[in-house]
């Protein structure tokens, strides 16, 4: 073939280029994580890894499977919409192993966090000046936290 006469150097160059491309593909297959590009320009496996993180808050449905009596008390009161772990803190460990002490929330800190009177809070939200209202008497002397209206659920 006359056309390929004196073209040997071009073939060698093409061969070198092909070998380079091949090397690139092989190295790339090792470097790029296997799930990269599965859903988009990212490592698809990362989604499952993030979803596998452990939970700390068990969720009120879990609490209520054992503490149905408290759920019952709560359901009729002002705190019906307040989930258990809003006051009791994360309890997934206690839910997995009930022998783990869930601890007792400190009402002296908790109650005023929401109910201390402040002009910044919505007007229709129940708030008190704790000092004026109770004069140092603990909240739960009169208010049962699970159903706080006086007389509802009774003082504890």
């Amino acid at each position: 073939m006359r056309i390929f006469k004196d073209a040997g150097h071009l073939f060698r160059l093409a061969g070198l280029f092909a070998a380079g491309t091949l090397l690139f593909l092989v190295i790339r297959s090792f470097i790029v994580p296997r799930s990269f590009g599965q859903y988009g320009h990212y490592r698809g496996a990362a989604i499952a890894e993030i979803a596998a993180h452990p939970i700390h808050f068990a969720g009120h449905q879990t609490c209520e499977t054992c503490h149905s009596d408290i759920a019952q008390t709560k359901s009729g009161g002002k705190h019906a919409q307040v989930n258990c772990e809003a006051c009791h803190g994360p309890q997934a460990k206690h839910a997995d192993d009930p022998s783990i002490d869930p601890g007792k929330p400190d009402t002296a800190v908790l109650c005023v966090r929401c109910h201390a009177a402040s002009a910044a809070r919505p007007n229709d939200f129940p708030q008190v000046d704790a000092e004026q209202h109770a004069g140092g008497v603990p909240c739960q002397t009169c208010h049962q936290p699970h159903s706080p209206a006086i007389g509802a659920g009774g003082a504890k």
């Binding site: 989604i47 979803a51 596998a52 993180h53 700390h56 808050f57 969720g59 989930n83 772990e85 809003a86």
Partner: peptide, 18 residues
């Protein structure tokens, strides 16, 4: 993400009292 993919709500929503 580790909660919502298990059918739970987020920790902030779970803890929000209002």
């Amino acid at each position: 993400y580790h909660r919502i993919t298990k059918g739970l709500t987020t920790a902030c929503c779970e803890a929000c009292p209002t």
